[in-house]
Structures are given as structure tokens and as C-alpha cells.
Design a protein around this nucleic acid. Sequence first.
DNA 1: CCTGGAGTTGTCCTA
DNA 2: TTAGGACAACTCCAG
Length: 476
Amino acid sequence: MGTALVWFRRDLRLADNPALATAAARHCCIPVFIHNPMDEGNWAPGGAGRWWLHHSLQALARDLERRGSRLTVLHASDTIACLCRLALDTGAEAVYWNRLYDPLLVLRDREIKSRLRQQGVHAESFAASLLREPWEVRRQDGGHYRTFTPFWRTLQTLPPTAARSGPPDELTAPHAWPSGTTIPDLDLLPRTGWDRGFHDHWRPGEAGAAAQLVTFLKHRLVGYHDHRDRPALAGTSRLSPHLHWGEISPRRIHDQVTDLAGSHPGEDATAFLTELGWREFAHHLLYHFPEMPETPLDRRFRRFPWARDADTALRAWQRGATGIPIVDAGMRELRATGWMHNRTRMIAGSLLTKNLRVSWQQGEAWFWDTLVDADLASNSMGWQWIQGCGADAAPYFRIFNPIRQGERFDADGEYVRRWVPELAGLPAAHIHSPGTAPAAILDAAGIRLGRDYPRPVVDPAVSRREALAAYDQIRH
DNA sequence: CCTGGAGTTGTCCTA
DNA sequence: TTAGGACAACTCCAG
């Protein structure tokens, strides 16, 4: 039996992993992970992503060792040369991997495939991280979709994909293991200690992902339709970082939800599956619009009048010191846990891009560095959507009022009290708008604005009108 | 080609 | 208190 390399990238799992399953069935396997941030240009994993990657690699290495295999870890400055060299050194006759769709990685992987084949090595890639390949979902005229609803309708009418495999029964070891580096030597963990609280919220790795799915299906799916919008509740699946790093496959999640919901999924299962659909759609868009992370899909936004003093506003937003409680709560949740509830992502994003008129790319960059689920497709689609410059833009006049949003989705103020404790003494009626609370209420809560909690950096009503004027300016 | 319905997540004002 | 309409116009997509 010959030897094959299984090149792990963002598919850090053993189950439903077609590259691994294929290699295991045919060859002695050498699982390998190559760390080279240069491959991804400006979009190499950020701080929170690297934290996750470190722990996920540790988990994968342990899982492989339990099956008599091991993970070879390499740190490269030239991935193509590194992989070709490794194939040569180990006498591998084949290299297998699962596909990724980030624009630079598509180009890199295409080059690698051709170089390996020139070298006489069998190179094969597989579909593993999406329900459907981005080119499989097509309009009737053969083009690709720009709006979500028809995209999702069409995807759901396609015949089901091949049956999922469990983890391979056996991983045959090679005659000799190649030498490599260690996971800690990749230096992925932050030095400042801002990841201190992450472990209380997350368990990276395939086992953690499976446990998270069980918890979700058992306790959170019923009521999901309503609860997912309330940031104080644990109403969302929290599967996004696991999905990003491929610790669980979307096909598995989709199947288990469908099995549970039966042939007539109710509003809860439907709403959750739709979220999986948005993840698909984001990858579909990124594949067909590779400039999406940097350039507004709506060209008119290249001349949008951004605010002059964007730096001050941006820093206040990043620190969670805007004086708008629901936004500050979200931004602090992000710093503390590496994650922010989707509802507050939208509210915070709307404030930054519309009320403060800071460019969406600035918000995108901050999320990229601080979110454990930072994903090029989802992050850039989300920011273009909230700015209103995306493929499927919301009407421009849809500007969130962060105070109203707080009152609607965090009615009793529980979320704000958790993340902005200096406001904990305020009653629910005023907790979302301390700037307009009566002096007596603030006194009773022991809060002096500007000392204990900032005054609002912006007036939602005034800045709303300014934003509308700005949008008017770029309309033809 | 033309036609017509529809488009994740909202806010504010009025009756 | 609450329900309904205005807020524009455009692009996407299926037929």
C-alpha cells in the first residue's frame, strides 16, 4: 500500500471528511497541516481566529493519535514548495484535500494541483465545507444569483448530495513519519491575555462541535425562531466557529435538523436552515465576486461621504464606549468572548456605518481580528449588507435606531446589565438610553454621565437624517 | 424581448 | 394603544 498526504486546512475533523476517507481507504496516510499566513494576503486569520486554530489543531492531533496516526505540522513561507517537497520526501503517490473558496486560496490550490501532477503525484480535491459547490447553484439562464431567496429556493430543490461518512475505521501509518514543528511553535496564541475568557465559552475541536450541535438540537431548536433575536438568551446555535474551521460539516447539521423536523419543518427548523442558507449564499457570492472583501458591490458607494473624524468614532466603537448601551454591550461581549450575538452585530454595524459614517471596511477589519468565527465570506457579505452596498442591498432608509432596537430585543435590559455593569442600577425603562434618563434616575443608580458611562457619541435621530442625506448624495 | 412580482433582519408618523 | 402607510427607485429573477 502506497502513501498519501492528507492536507488539512479548514476541515479539522475526521467525520464526513471526504479527503481523509478517500486517502484512508487507499493508502497509508500522513495527515499534514501547513501554516502560512502569507497565502491569504490581508485575510490571514486574525487574533481570535488564531486562538481557535491553535486549540482546534491540538484537538485534531489528539484525535489522530487516538487512531494510531499523527498530525505533521509545518510552518512554511512557500506552501507550494513545502507540499511538493513533502510529497517527494515521503514518497507520497497522492495528495488529497478538501476545497476552500477564498479567492487567493482558489488560485493557490489550482497551482498546487498542477505542480503536483507535473511531479507525477495524484492530486485530488473534494467538496466538504458547503451544502453545494458555489458553481452548482445556477439561475435558469445559467448565471449566478445575487439575491438570497431565489438562491436558497433553487439550492433546496437540487437532489441531495452523497451519503455522509463517519470517521475512518482505520488510519494506516506510513513506514516513517516526516519531521515537523509543534503546534505551540506556530505562535498562534495572543500574548496580551485578551483570550483569558474564551475557554469559558468555547470548546474548539470536533468533539466540541458535536457537543454543541447536540445541545442546540436538544435545547435551543424549539423556540429558535423567536429566541435567536434576543441577545440576552443563548438562543443561537453558536456553531459558526466550528463551521468555519470545518470541525463539523454543514451537511451533517442539515441532515440532523431535517431528521428531527420531519417532512414538514416548522418555523424553528426552517429559520435555522435558512441561516445555513445564508452561509452558503455568502460563499456563493465570494466565489463569484472575489473582490467582495475589499470593494463595495454597489459601485456608487465608492464616493460615499464618510465622516471626517472617523478615527475617534472608530476607537470609541471598538472599546465599547459609544454611550449607546446595546452597542457597547455587544462590543464588550466581542472583546470578552470572541463572539457577538447576530442581532447586536447588526445594530453595532449599523451604528458604525450609518450613524457614525465610518466605512464598512473598518468594521470588517475589526471583526476579522476579534471574532472567533471570522470568515471571509460571511464577514464581508455581512458588512456590505449592513452598509447597504451589497449584492442584495436593503433599502437605504432602513437605518436601525439602536435605542429602539435595544428596547425591542433586550426589553428588560438583561444583556446590557451583563456586559455594561456600570449601568446595572438603571431600570429597564431607561437602561437603553441613559443619555435621556431623568437626573433623579441617574442619581439613584449612582451614574454620572461622562464619568461613569460616556455620553452618546452621536444622536441617533440627528445622525439618521445625516445618513439619509449622505445616501441621497450618491444616488443617481 | 417584455412583464410583473418580489426583495432577512426598519423607523416614524398618523389616524 | 395599535395598525397601516410612507419612505424611492432599482435590480433581480422567473415566466
